[in-house]
Every structure is written in structure tokens, then in C-alpha cells.
Design a protein around this nucleic acid. Structure first.
Lengths: 328, 328
DNA sequence: CTGAAAGCGCTTACAG
DNA sequence: CTGAAAGCGCTTACAG
């Protein structure tokens, strides 16, 4: 900028005005400055700008795994909202590791992102307290924050799972298995709670062997499914706790006899499988959009009480959830 | 930092030393400074640091659409490499709009990212010249840069398409249609070139009606497929230019008679469809990894000539590509 | 082992 | 309409 000013024979501030399109520069001066900018290949250094202005016009997004299809539309929705507010997205994956989440969040804070959208991996976010006190806006998505007051935007995991399991019961099933994600993860336990509620409301007992929470690694899920489908009292239907689980279960069932299945989370091509896979769909893009809107409302100066928003789910029958119990 | 120094009764530089873990501080002083840091909730402001050091420890990633499943593993791979080098990822989607790509790239440059990984939407990247001259490292992925010398990492679109089409020919097809992405996109024309080469090598004529490039919007693709499957000389097999096209074609075919199909790009569940979808698989994660490695090699000070790397594709037969021509 | 001074490239507040 | 001075929060280069 100094070079441009010298080259154009004007003051620093005049260059600043031209670069930022501020008024109060004669067309003639402006043209001269523009020419110098082009000649020197000048590009404003936003780091310096940030240092003065205090805002970076960027927000951080911490998610579990960029490669998981559930997070694609969510990220994209956050990006679109950020873009509408002139902000860039800085992001990273926690890989479901609380320590890595913490490092990532703190690195983003050190860059002084204006706000943070976090899909938490950990369940203790007190490390954020100094940041929040310093004015950082944070919104949690998909799972609530731990031990800290903050906005959170969730799908109705409990209600969705309950509806999905009730759907299976309505189609005649009495022995239904639940395979979900690790019990450390909030959505997994909420969906389990929905499963139990639906069973209880129908007056159906739940055998301990019908509930399996743990890693979504295909081997673990396949073993769980095989266990429930075999044994003395085999289940006649399965409820899968998220799309990773559903896909593995579909693979297992493709190699076995058809068993009724409802999965939480929609996924591409679910309708083209035979039978089509009945799902409890959640709107990933809406989660991202609502969370980002909330964040920018705060960045705009609003200071409402932290709020919890639950987005409804939608049961999409496609065939697999309407299969009757197989004859024993 | 000034506050911490005052609070601990030491000089600024000493706080800097403690914050950065530099040697030359007595354990006692260090402890005092640490206490002040905690008491005041101090977090280093990386913007200021960047301004001095000249490096931001962040790289920009510009892709087409964060929500497209092809880019998930690619992004994740870039992120992992960046993480190994202590860098964060700033990213955005161009939405296949050259002007938006340009804005995004320049915004990233203004933030002074150390380097850039770009999946180009446009075909003229001369706007990057001042940046490159100023030392910005840039690697293009999936498609080459336009009118500028730069590293590029691609899949072998030509070879992969040629192999896929030859596979269909080997299974007895003589009338094969090609449906691809917009001709403005490099991969689309390369794959078309591969299609033509395979047909020519087999001595097969290609009717103009068998080639259709354009938007990957489902309506456009469905119409193109319907056109090729109907008419006087219907095709007996289709080659789909990318995974968006393949998915739509599978949908169309599910509602019609079975037609042989090979798609460029693998996708989840392709093996569970009936028939399984034969694909020419490319390794999205490897594209991202190789590109990011190249970038950090440059950031490490290496100044090799810009290089073009082509990653091989892999034909994965699953059923749809091995269907014989239907009796006329 | 420790610290005062200068400077990174901008913007803010002020004066002409 | 234009510009000189101060300062954002750090690090660098240097001196004690």
C-alpha cells in the first residue's frame, strides 16, 4: 500500500479509500491510484485489516468427518449463509475425537473467527468459556454442547426413532432390534430412548440382546445384526440408528433373508434398492442453515438467551419398513 | 499480551517466549506468566502473528460443491495433509460458476493463505498471475488450469472412459450412448474423447444422437437417456460421464427395460443395486492427497517446474456393464 | 535469562 | 478532497 501510494504520488489514506471504495476521492486521483495498483499487482492484505477492524469476516465449522455424506449438505448450507454475510468458512474434522475437536476449535479461535458452528465430538466444552466471555459466538449442531450454555440446533432424534419403531410395530412386528452409534454420542442415546418408548407404548418387552450401541464400523454393525437375526428369539425387524449403520445392515440383509428395516437418516439411492429402504429423514441442510442463521443473528449484535431448536423428522416409507414379520 | 506482561510483571517478549514455548525462560518466570495467562483468559491473536511472520499456516480449498459426494473424500484428504503440516483449511464452493470461483480465490488470497488447492470452474486463471508472482503456491485438481502454468493432478479421464466403453464393446454392444457433463468442463470432453477412441478402435460408427453433453440436472440427463433409448436406432448400452449422471441414468433404467451401463466415478451402494453398477472408479482421496502433498512440497521451498500428474482409474465390473445387448 | 524499540500492513480519528 | 500520526497485537533483531 505504501508502494502504491508512492507510485501514485498520493497519501496512504487515499489508497485505502480507493481500495475500499470509500467516497471522497476525485475521479482523476482514483484513476491514478487504480493504475498504480494494477501496475504493482497490489492486493490488500486482509490480515492487517483484521488486526485493525477486529472482525475477520470468517466463521469456523467443526464437524465430524468432511467425507461423511451427512455433513456435505450441512456444510454447504452453512457456507451459503456465510457467503450471504460476506464471510468465509474455515473448517476441519474432529474425527469424533474430543481432543482433536478441542485443538481445532482453539486453533480457529486463535485465528479470531467471528463465530463457530460446532458438531461436537466431546461432551465437555468448558474450554470455550474464556472465548465466549471474550465475545465469541458459538452454535452447536446435531448434538448439544457439554457443560456450557450455548445455542444448539438438533433433529428430533427421540421423536423420529419413536415414530420409526412404531411404524414397524404397526406392521406387525413384536421383536425389533436397535443398532446404533456409540453411547457417548447424544443422538445415539436419544434414538435408543425413542425405540424404548415406542416398544413400551405398545406394551412390548425389550430383550437386552436387541439393543446394540457401539462403533459404526461395518464389522461391528454386521456382527450385531447377525447376532440379533440368529439366536433363540430372532428379531423380525431392525431399526438402524444412522445412515452408516443402515448401509451396513442393508449389506448384511442383502446376503440373508429379507428382514424389515427402518433407518434413521435418508441417503442417496435408498429408493432404488430392492426393497426401497424406509427411513426417518432428517434435513441436514436445514440444520446447517438454521444454525448459521442463529450464529449471524448473534454476530449482528443480538444477545438472546441460548436456545435449543429441534427440527422435525419425516418418515419416508419405501418398502423395507413395511415388510411383514417373516413366518418363523 | 500487554496485559499479561503487566499482570505478571515481565516484559512483552517474555510473554511471547512462554506463549510460543521458546527456550530461555526460568521455570519460575514461566509459571508466573502461565498463571497470568490463565487468570486473564489470554489467547494469542494469530492475525497479528501472521502479519509479522508472513505465513498464515492455512491453505485455501476451492471446490465445486461441498455437498457433492465426490468432493467429500477429496476435501478430507486435503485436510489430513494440511493438518500434518499444522495448517488449517479455508474453503468454499464455486458452484461451477467461474466468476464465483474468481471471487472466492481472491478472497482467499486477501487472507494470505499460504497456498491454494483449486478445482477450477473457469478456464481462464490469468487473474492469479499477480498472486503467483507474489509467491502463492497453487495446485489444480480434477481439471487443469486455464491459460496459466500450474501444477495439476487429474484422473485419467480419457483412458478410463476408453476402457469403460471398450468393456461394453467387448460384451457385444455396437450402439453405445455417451451422456456427460457440460462441454465447458475438461473432464467431460476428455471422457467423450475416450468414448470416441474406443468406438473408433473397434471400427464402430458413432451417430451424433448418441453423444449428449450438458448440465447434470436430472431432467436434462433423463431426457437425453430417453432419447437414446427410443428412436429408430436405439442404443443398447450407455456410458455415463460422472456419478451425478450415473445415478440419474440408473433411475431412468429402473423404470424401463434393463440396458447395459458403465459409469465414470464410483458411488456408495453401487454394488447393492440390481444389477450392480459397473463403474470406472477414480480415487478422490488420492487426488486430494497428491495435490496437497505437491502444494506443501512447494511451500517447503521447492521450485520444480509445474507438473501434470494423471492418476489411473480402475474398472469395477458389477453386472450392469456385462449385460448383453437386448434382442431388438 | 530478560526486555525496549521497531515494524508487519492496514484503519481510525483527526486536522488541514 | 487529502494526508500525517497513532495504533491494532504480535515478532524480529538487538542490547543488556
Amino acid at each position: 500500500m505504501k508502494d502504491v501510494a508512492a507510485h501514485a504520488g498520493v497519501g496512504l489514506k487515499t489508497v485505502s479509500r480507493v481500495v475500499n471504495g470509500e467516497p471522497g476521492v476525485t475521479p482523476d486521483t482514483e484513476r491514478r491510484v487504480q493504475e498504480s495498483i494494477t501496475a504493482l499487482g497490489f492486493r490488500r492484505n486482509d490480515s492487517a485489516r483484521v488486526l485493525r477492524k477486529g472482525r475477520t469476516a470468517s466463521i469456523g465449522l467443526v464437524l465430524e468427518d468432511l467425507a461423511d455424506p451427512f455433513y456435505g449438505p450441512l456444510s454447504r448450507a452453512v457456507e451459503e449463509v456465510a457467503r450471504a454475510h460476506g464471510a468465509l468458512l474455515v473448517n476441519g474434522s474432529s474425527a469424533e475425537d474430543p481432543e482433536r475437536e478441542r485443538e481445532l476449535v482453539l486453533a480457529l479461535c486463535a485465528r479470531r473467527v467471528d463465530g463457530l458452528v460446532v458438531i461436537p465430538a466431546g461432551d465437555d466444552h468448558r474450554y470455550l468459556e474464556p472465548e465466549v466471555r471474550a465475545g465469541l459466538a458459538t452454535v452447536f449442531v446435531d448434538r448439544p454442547a457439554g457443560r456450557i450454555e450455548a445455542d444448539v440446533v438438533l433433529s428430533d432424534s427421540y421423536g423420529g426413532a419413536r415414530e420409526g419403531v412404531a411404524h414397524l410395530i404397526a406392521h406387525g412386528h413384536r421383536r425389533i432390534g436397535f443398532i446404533g452409534d456409540h453411547p457417548r454420542i447424544h443422538t445415539a442415546t436419544e434414538r435408543l430412548r425413542g425405540y424404548r418408548a415406542a416398544m413400551a407404548e405398545a406394551g412390548l418387552p425389550v430383550a437386552p440382546a436387541w439393543e446394540s450401541l457401539g462403533s459404526t464400523a461395518p464389522e461391528r454393525v454386521a456382527a450385531a445384526a447377525a447376532g440379533m437375526l440368529g439366536g433363540a428369539e430372532p428379531v423380525t425387524a431392525l431399526f438402524a440408528g444412522n445412515n452408516r449403520v443402515t448401509v451396513t445392515v442393508v449389506r448384511v440383509l442383502a446376503a440373508a433373508r429379507p428382514v424389515a428395516l427402518v433407518g434413521f437418516d435418508d441417503f442417496e439411492l435408498a429408493d432404488l434398492l430392492r426393497p426401497g429402504v424406509t427411513v426417518v429423514a432428517q434435513d441436514a441442510a436445514a440444520l446447517g442453515r438454521v444454525a448459521a442463521d442463529r450464529l449471524f443473528t448473534r454476530l449482528g449484535g443480538a444477545r438472546p438467551e441460548p436456545e435449543r431448536t429441534e427440527l422435525p423428522t419425516r418418515l419416508v416409507p419405501r418398502g423395507s419398513g413395511e415388510l411383514p414379520p417373516a413366518a418363523p
